[in-house]
Design a binder for these strands. Structure first.
Lengths: 236, 236
DNA sequence: CGGGATCCCAAGCGATACTG
DNA sequence: CAGTATCGCTTGGGATCCCG
């Protein structure tokens, strides 16, 4: 029969439709990077070092066809999310949270980009906790990535401040008091401990050191229920 | 160098790690079905008609290795989620919501299973709205799927009541008043309209018909911001 | 008969080279 | 810089076959 479409799931339902559109390899990583703002072809390729260029090209075409991204007319090779694509933010944040809860270490050679760190912070951000604090800026260095996270009034704005950061077009939140600034550094391997609530691996570089506790309560992942010390695991 | 693992993303971060573990084709559909409860190999295959049996077998092994699922020792061919796997519920629900917001129609031959309908209802469920209503049971028929959704005190419990439904082991929420029961039917093609807030395609079969409004406010997807009539779309 | 394992072929993916 | 073209390898799809 010719009626059977190839590579469909033969399923009706939201998950099946979503996975058909953004479930291909690399697609959600591209969306993740674009959630931080418009990017050019070379930016995406630099942030995804192991993606073959033809695959990046294919994915960009597919995501355009699915209405998830569009080209930026004024920038050569520029891409940005559509409203539909921005609607994937809850999906990406949920994946980010689960990914930190899942066991696993970094393979050597893995890169840690500013866009990845930005999504991590947004996934760990607790708006309700942050709203009780005065405006604060955190300058965070982890691996190769350096970002500025400005927290004000329960809102969060993360910006790449690394050596080859793009100029940010949109206005940023402003820090009320310039004294509430904390600059620190953390090893990538310690990030999961830090986001689990343990601020000890954090090395303060500058700023008022009391703010480390504020950071720890503003950015934190909850452990998954039932994932205590009595680890459940079936033997292989 | 032999240190580079094949098929890794070369990325450190939550999204990359999550996609490495549950991003393979079919994996999240399997997780979706297991979110409704333990299933046997043949149940999964029946709910995923187009999955090749070797792929189902591969995915089950991979998901076991990733700590997402485990075998049920007492049931031949039985599988269930681990605590880590249950942690994927927010991911699956976010995908379900986005999938309904994304354009697309059912291909003919697509099946609509009770597990898919169950996730749809859980994704559309508004606990805060439901808490204000007295306990209610909705008997919903959509396509081949028939489920009973019991709503009580802001909690939701969905159960397959179709012809070949599995016996449910765990206790269910009980409906306070047996009068608050509504049985109805909806065409699969009308489901997106129904979950968008339009209860008109709903055909009441039995029960107090005032409850249709209650259903409509208890189960609803919000439209994506910026997805109004002025559709943004780039030409191909 | 349910629960898989084994084939073969097609499609997708990855690395490199090349072009506008 | 922003892709396209090509090639070999890996994975998925479909049918069949095996095992308890």
């Amino acid at each position: 029969m010719a009626t059977r479409s190839p590579r469909g799931f033969g399923q009706y339902g939201g998950v099946a439709r979503a996975v058909e559109r953004v479930g291909e390899r690399w697609a959600l990583l591209i969306v993740r990077d674009l959630l931080a703002g418009a990017r050019r072809y070379s930016d995406l390729k630099a942030g995804l070092p192991r993606i073959p260029t033809n695959i990046l090209s294919d994915r960009l075409k597919e995501l355009q066809l699915a209405g998830v991204i569009r080209r930026v007319p004024t920038v050569r090779g520029g891409y940005e999310l559509t409203a539909l694509g921005r609607g994937l933010e809850p999906v990406v944040l949920a994946l980010e949270r689960w990914g930190w809860a899942a066991p696993g270490d970094a393979a050597d050679g893995d890169v840690f980009t500013a866009d990845a760190l930005g999504i991590t912070l947004r996934a760990a951000f607790r708006s309700d906790v942050a709203a009780a604090f005065p405006p604060t800026e955190y300058l965070l260095h982890a691996g190769e990535a350096s970002v500025s996270a400005v927290v004000a009034g329960g809102a969060l704005d993360v910006m790449d401040v690394g050596p080859d950061a793009l100029p940010q077009p949109q206005g940023r939140l402003s820090v009320g008091s310039t004294e509430d600034v904390l600059e620190f550094q953390v090893a990538v391997a310690d990030l999961d401990r830090l986001l689990g609530g343990d601020v000890s691996p954090l090395e303060v570089l500058a700023g008022r050191s009391e703010l480390v506790e504020r950071f720890g309560s503003t950015f934190r992942f909850d452990p998954l229920p039932g994932m205590g010390v009595d680890a459940e695991r079936s033997a292989a």
